Simulated assay, not measured.
Amino acid sequence: MMAENKYYPIRIAAAAQDSTLRVNNTCVSVKNATRSIEFYKKHFGMTFLGSKDFADMKFSLHFLSFAKEVGKNEQGEPEIFGTSGVLELAHSWGSENDPEFKINNGNEEPYRGFGHICFSVADIEKTCEKLEAEGVSFKKRMSDGRQKDIAFALDPDGYWIELVQYIKDTEGGPREDIGDKFNHTMIRVKDADKSVEFYQNVLGMKLVRRSDHENAKFTLYFLAYGVPSGQNSWSTEGVLELTHNWGTENDPDFKYHTGDWNTPGYDHVTISCNDPAALCNEIEQRYGDKISWGTKFNQGMVKNGAFIKDPDGYSIEIVPSDLVL
């Protein structure tokens, strides 16, 4: 049973009452941007939404998602941050020509922390057959291991892409093909009570599903905005999965790798809303130095944005929904 309001007892009103809050994107570094963009377009049918170059820092950001309606501002620019299910690829210029440059996929020691992204599909067997026919590598096929209803494909940098099926006989939800979805992003956390409470009370997410695995001694927590608890969330986008391996919370020296520029790999998730200033200001007022910030509101390179740190040190970017590239 989880502790109740032990670490972050105050529920931030600006988060709890803001219906515009969403998990917008997940950002990972890639070695070769062209190769990665083409991989996700060809094999998964993702749509390229746009790019942003930062010439002074010699890197670019590239955005993709599954087909969806993306609004446009008065200038006709896509409002990428006003939706969920976006994959952000960060590319340091020239890394594709550096034989020593290697991406950390988050699943190998000593850089274990981030686990995977997850795409949810209507027919997982058909999807896996298509990917295999196209030469996509797999970390786990459906026939491998005990779980026969999931698979893990590998992208060009070795990131794990979990594949699940949202049409399920045992749960409510879609009974027909509604298109592929970027369902969730998984990170490992040291203390489940502390992390779940942070995402619920500080950032306003709701715990929509919990899955205990006693034999393997771990628990999965799925959090999201706008999904009622207990509802089939496999067909939605913008879900965050927290994996807790039992006992890590009792080891004072235990720490996950949460991402940095020296070991390029997973970088952050982004949440967006109409008024990030109100959210960030209330978090500061309510919690003060109990909360760590990478960059406080409007003090970094992202206009009207901020980077907050979760209890493990993972970065969460907070931006306005109408931010444009």
Rank of each mutant, 00 (worst) to 15 (best):
Y40T: 01
E38T: 11
P174I: 04
G300I: 04
Y287G: 01
S272Y: 04
L207N: 02
R11S: 14
A278I: 01
L131W: 07
V302C: 00
E241Q: 12
F218P: 04
V202T: 14
K309S: 05
L207W: 01
K255R: 09
E241K: 06
L64Y: 03
Y225E: 06
F152E: 08
V208Q: 00
K194S: 07
G115V: 00
F81N: 09
G82E: 01
G106H: 13
T170M: 09
Y8W: 15
P228H: 08
M142C: 15
A13Y: 14
V239M: 06
P78G: 06
N232T: 08
N304E: 01
I316E: 11
I291Q: 08
P228S: 12
T20H: 13
D180Y: 12
E100M: 14
K140M: 14
P252V: 04
R35S: 10
S51I: 03
K130V: 02
T258L: 02
K190M: 00
E125L: 01
A15N: 10
N107L: 13
A306F: 00
T26R: 09
A151C: 05
E249D: 08
N183Q: 13
V28W: 14
E284T: 07
G173K: 02
F152D: 08
L207K: 06
F222L: 13
Y314R: 01
D155A: 07
G238I: 07
S120Y: 02
T295C: 05
V239F: 04
G106L: 15
P110Q: 09
K130S: 14
I124R: 11
M2E: 15
G94I: 03
F222A: 14
S292V: 00
Q17P: 10
F44I: 08
E38I: 08
S233L: 06
D312F: 01
G226Q: 11
S60V: 11
G179M: 12
S120I: 04
I318W: 07
D180C: 11
M1I: 07
P156I: 10
I308C: 12
R146C: 10
E176A: 10
L89T: 03
T185W: 06
S235N: 05
K190S: 01
F222M: 12
I283S: 06
E129W: 01
